[in-house]
Simulated scan of single mutants.
Amino acid sequence: MRNKAWAAIALTRSGIIQARRLREEISGLTVYAMPRLCTDREKPIDRPIAEFAGEMFCRYDTIIFITACGIAVRAIAPHLRSKSSDPGVLVMDEQGGFVISLLSGHIGGANDAARLVEKLTGARAIITTASDAGGKIAVDTLAGRLGCAIDSLEDAKRVTALIVNGETVAIDSRRDIKVELPESIVSYREGCGAAGIIRVTNRVPEPANLPCAYLIEKSTVIGIGCRRGTGAKQIQELIDRELERLGIDRRSIKKLASIDIKSDEQGILKAAEHYGAQACFIDKERILAVEGDFAESGFVRASVGVGGVCEPCGFIASGGGRMLLGKTTANGVAISVWEEV
């Protein structure tokens, strides 16, 4: 599993000086260096650099080589897989004059990482992706800034090409987009004359007449009540069934919410992991404060001390969001579905 922090790789004395400088500025950055250069604050590179780089690919989201660019390229080349999964890779020269966004500039975040290093150290960021070089924004960059999943990388590339070439692209979202956009990206409306569309949604993508990139927002919250010992499979089956019926994309699930006494319920925890969602557990006192707005059950009150679980927990966890599905039960599981507004 990847560490969200950074790794810096240095092979020389000059390089490790820059790596230590970065460590002071970037919280959680781990410095890897040749054993002869390490203090007790660094970790040794104990194998050939290409083999070592492969391990870093699996462990870190951002890797900065403080080496010649060619060394970095040869080290990472055997481990490249896909722009959707490769980490962001930077290269910084040993004097700290330049920092290059080398790999995964958009989805992997290398472009933003290079800008951060520039801001913190004064090194000049070198960014070569066409959208950034032209003052535009790529669809995958926008997805990252909005915290969205990209439905199709091919569709995202097609719409990005329109943006880079100065075509008008419309953005369709039920919520305000709090990201600065170039003038060529306009709000969606009928007859706006757009050559392509970016749709930010929690719904299952549908075919479109124009090139269309779907960005799946994390905005769906599932309230859950269940019997003790209920398995993740039973929970997932009910969630999947109801989301399909509602036309909600499973990738949009942000939270699974239940009462605090369920915080060790393995079925809920494993289901949250399955969806890449947060398991959220609500204090009984907070549920009591809002339970009058929802249907109550004497059995539930006798069992856990509140009149209902799935509906009030979904309401609270969604920040008072919109209910898409009221209490629905199957095989000892009760869920409600909400979307943040």
Score class of each variant (00 low, 15 high):
Asp93Met: 14
Gly96Ile: 04
Gly96Ser: 02
Gly97Arg: 15
Phe98Asn: 13
Val99His: 00
Ser101Leu: 14
Ser104Ile: 03
Ala110Arg: 03
Asn111Gln: 07
Asp112Tyr: 01
Ala113Asn: 06
Ala113Leu: 02
Ala114Ile: 09
Arg115Tyr: 13
Arg115Gln: 13
Arg115Gly: 12
Leu116Pro: 00
Glu118Gly: 00
Glu118Phe: 04
Glu118His: 04
Lys119Glu: 15
Leu120Ile: 13
Thr121Asp: 01
Gly122Pro: 11
Ala123Tyr: 06
Arg124Glu: 15
Arg124Asn: 14
Ala125Leu: 10
Ala130Tyr: 11
Ala130Asp: 12
Ser131Val: 06
Ser131Asn: 15
Ala133Arg: 12
Gly134Thr: 13
Gly134Glu: 12
Lys136Ser: 09
Ile137Val: 12
Ala138Cys: 01
Val139Pro: 05
Val139Leu: 10
Asp140Pro: 05
Leu142Glu: 03
Ala143Asn: 05
Ala143Cys: 09
Gly144Glu: 12
Arg145Asp: 00
Leu146Val: 02
Leu146Phe: 06
Gly147Trp: 09
Cys148Met: 02
Ile150Asp: 07
Ile150Lys: 02
Ile150Phe: 03
Ser152Leu: 14
Ser152Glu: 09
Leu153Gly: 09
Asp155Phe: 02
Ala156Asn: 06
Lys157Gln: 14
Arg158Ala: 15
Val159Phe: 09
Val159Ser: 10
Val159Leu: 03
Val159Pro: 06
Leu162His: 07
Val164Thr: 11
Gly166Gln: 10
Thr168Val: 15
Thr168Ile: 15
Thr168Trp: 04
Val169Leu: 10
Ala170Thr: 06
Ile171Ala: 06
Arg174Pro: 02
Arg175Lys: 08
Arg175Leu: 12
Arg175Pro: 00
Asp176Ala: 14
Lys178Met: 10
Val179Glu: 06
Glu180Ile: 13
Glu183Pro: 02
Ser184Asn: 15
Ile185Thr: 13
Ile185Leu: 14
Val186Thr: 13
Val186Asp: 04
Ser187Phe: 07
Glu190Arg: 15
Gly191Trp: 11
Cys192Gly: 05
Gly193Arg: 01
Gly193Thr: 14
Ala194Gly: 01
Ala194Ile: 12
Ala195Pro: 04
Gly196Phe: 04
Ile197Asp: 11
Thr201Glu: 04
Thr201Val: 05
Asn202Leu: 07
